[in-house]
């Protein structure tokens, strides 16, 4: 196993409830820094709930609450002193469906900086270019930065959302099915991008596409019915998993 990187996110005995329904049961796992950790499992297994617990996106759901420990760099995400806005700046998120703002390409990427108070045009220009370059989109849009974001293709919109997340300089990127609505070419671009980004960011990706998990991730966690069944080196999960349930899932024997 190549878990040589230090731990970025520590999750310990974490439970989560929607009302009285318990949807995550005692999840314990460590996410290594600057690696890609994939979460796989059938629909409804809790992987999205889990990933949304890391940046407290679940806070906005009424009647939902978590218990247990989620630490980032050793600091409790659910602690009283945690500033949720600051937390979400550090932990960026990309969703299944690209969701650009009804603004220009430029303004989408600059948005986070502007609301954080950056007004200097040079600073904005610089960050917009840097973020779009990191998201492998710059060359495709540099001549039409002020065109509407909606004029972009689905794959480009998704990379724009990644650029927007990168603009505020996060440490962690959470990706919830970032390529499931994209064609194979756009998917390949996103996967290549994930591979590039991991040298600077800690990435947690939820995916239904097991081959994608196998291709992009260093570590894979298999969730089932709200429980973490197996967590390990991606190669082990796909070549020789320890648990029968994991074996059945990755070979499609499930059911």
């Amino acid at each position: 196993m190549k878990v040589t990187n230090p731990t970025k996110i520590t999750v310990k005995d974490f439970n989560f409830y929607y009302g009285t329904a318990k949807v995550l049961h005692g999840i314990t796992l460590d996410v290594p820094e600057r690696q890609v950790t994939a979460l796989i499992g059938p629909s409804g297994c809790g992987k999205s709930t889990f990933v949304r617990s890391i940046n407290r996106m679940n806070d906005i759901i009424p009647d939902a609450h978590g218990e247990g420990t989620v630490l980032i760099d050793g600091k409790n995400v659910y602690g009283k002193e945690t500033d949720v806005v600051e937390l979400r700046r550090r932990v960026g998120m990309v969703f299944q469906k690209s969701n650009p703002f009804p603004k220009s390409i430029y303004d989408n990427v600059a948005y986070g900086l502007r609301i954080n108070g950056t007004k200097n045009k040079r600073d904005l220009d610089e960050t917009v270019e840097k973020s779009l370059t990191r998201a492998a989109l710059w060359d495709e849009v540099k001549d039409r930065l002020h065109a509407s974001a909606f004029a972009l293709s689905g794959g480009q919109q998704q990379r724009l959302c990644i650029a927007r997340a990168l603009a505020i300089d996060p440490e962690i990127l959470l990706m919830d099915e970032p390529a499931s609505a994209l064609d194979p070419i756009a998917t390949t671009k996103i996967e290549e991008l994930i591979y590039e980004l991991k040298s600077n960011y800690t990435i947690v990706i939820v995916t239904h596409n097991m081959q994608q998990a196998a291709r992009v991730s260093d570590r894979t966690a298999f969730f089932m019915l709200g429980k973490l069944v197996e967590y390990g080196d991606t190669k082990t999960i796909f070549m020789n998993p320890r648990e029968k349930m994991t074996e059945d899932y990755v070979t499609g024997r499930f059911g």
Partner: peptide
Amino acid sequence: MQPAASDLR
């Protein structure tokens, strides 16, 4: 089929 686990082996 892109086999995995025991299928791959």
